[in-house]
Protein backbone atom coordinates (compact mmCIF):
# COMPACT_ATOMS: atom_id res chain seq x y z
CA UNK A 1 0.00 0.00 0.00
CA UNK A 2 1.58 3.27 -1.15
CA UNK A 3 0.35 6.76 -0.33
CA UNK A 4 1.71 9.80 -2.17
CA UNK A 5 1.17 13.24 -0.67
CA UNK A 6 1.88 16.48 -2.52
CA UNK A 7 1.06 20.11 -1.83
CA UNK A 8 -2.08 21.32 -3.59
CA UNK A 9 -1.33 23.23 -6.80
CA UNK A 10 -2.39 26.54 -5.24
CA UNK A 11 0.07 26.20 -2.35
CA UNK A 12 3.58 27.28 -3.23
CA UNK A 13 6.29 24.67 -2.82
CA UNK A 14 9.62 26.36 -2.05
CA UNK A 15 11.43 23.03 -1.91
CA UNK A 16 10.24 22.15 -5.38
CA UNK A 17 11.20 25.60 -6.58
CA UNK A 18 14.69 25.16 -5.12
CA UNK A 19 15.08 21.91 -7.07
CA UNK A 20 13.79 23.61 -10.22
CA UNK A 21 16.35 26.38 -9.75
CA UNK A 22 19.13 23.82 -9.38
CA UNK A 23 18.01 22.01 -12.55
CA UNK A 24 18.13 25.30 -14.43
CA UNK A 25 21.66 25.95 -13.23
CA UNK A 26 22.64 22.45 -14.37
CA UNK A 27 21.37 23.22 -17.86
CA UNK A 28 18.10 21.26 -17.74
CA UNK A 29 16.05 24.11 -19.13
CA UNK A 30 13.30 21.87 -20.40
CA UNK A 31 11.98 21.15 -16.91
CA UNK A 32 9.30 23.74 -16.17
CA UNK A 33 7.98 22.70 -12.77
CA UNK A 34 8.99 20.54 -9.81
CA UNK A 35 6.66 19.61 -6.97
CA UNK A 36 8.11 17.79 -3.98
CA UNK A 37 6.02 15.37 -1.97
CA UNK A 38 6.05 12.50 0.48
CA UNK A 39 5.83 8.81 -0.27
CA UNK A 40 4.53 6.44 2.42
CA UNK A 41 4.78 2.67 2.18
CA UNK A 42 2.35 0.87 4.48
CA UNK A 43 2.41 -2.87 5.03
CA UNK A 44 -1.02 -4.33 5.81
CA UNK A 45 -1.81 -7.65 7.47
CA UNK A 46 -4.38 -9.58 5.43
CA UNK A 47 -6.76 -7.89 3.03
CA UNK A 48 -6.53 -4.14 3.21
CA UNK A 49 -9.68 -2.22 4.04
CA UNK A 50 -9.63 0.44 1.37
CA UNK A 51 -12.01 2.78 3.14
CA UNK A 52 -9.92 2.61 6.29
CA UNK A 53 -6.72 3.30 4.36
CA UNK A 54 -8.35 6.20 2.56
CA UNK A 55 -9.32 7.63 5.92
CA UNK A 56 -5.80 7.17 7.33
CA UNK A 57 -4.33 8.88 4.30
CA UNK A 58 -6.70 11.82 4.44
CA UNK A 59 -6.73 12.41 8.18
CA UNK A 60 -3.18 11.70 9.28
CA UNK A 61 -0.72 11.22 6.44
CA UNK A 62 -1.93 14.35 4.61
CA UNK A 63 -3.27 17.66 5.78
CA UNK A 64 -6.31 18.23 3.55
CA UNK A 65 -6.01 21.98 4.03
CA UNK A 66 -2.87 22.11 1.92
CA UNK A 67 -2.14 18.66 0.55
CA UNK A 68 -3.59 16.23 -1.99
CA UNK A 69 -3.30 12.52 -1.44
CA UNK A 70 -3.17 9.56 -3.83
CA UNK A 71 -3.43 5.89 -2.86
CA UNK A 72 -1.91 3.00 -4.77
CA UNK A 73 -2.67 -0.53 -3.70
CA UNK A 74 0.15 -2.94 -4.37
CA UNK A 75 -0.05 -6.69 -3.96
CA UNK A 76 3.54 -7.69 -3.33
Amino acid sequence: MVVDVVLKPEISDPQGQAVLGALGRLGHDGITSVRQGKHFVLEVDGTPDEAELQQIAETLLANPVIEDVELHLTTD
Binding site: P9, E10, S12, P14, Q17
Partner: peptide
Protein backbone atom coordinates in the same frame (compact mmCIF):
# COMPACT_ATOMS: atom_id res chain seq x y z
CA UNK B 1 15.38 37.39 -2.17
CA UNK B 2 13.66 34.07 -1.72
CA UNK B 3 10.88 35.61 0.34
CA UNK B 4 10.47 38.11 -2.45
CA UNK B 5 9.37 35.34 -4.77
CA UNK B 6 6.25 34.97 -2.65
CA UNK B 7 4.28 38.16 -3.21
CA UNK B 8 2.90 39.48 0.04
CA UNK B 9 -0.85 39.56 0.19
CA UNK B 10 -1.51 36.78 -2.28
CA UNK B 11 -1.32 33.07 -2.24
CA UNK B 12 1.23 32.26 -4.85
CA UNK B 13 0.56 29.59 -7.39
CA UNK B 14 3.29 27.69 -9.04
Amino acid sequence: AAVGTVPAGTVPTS
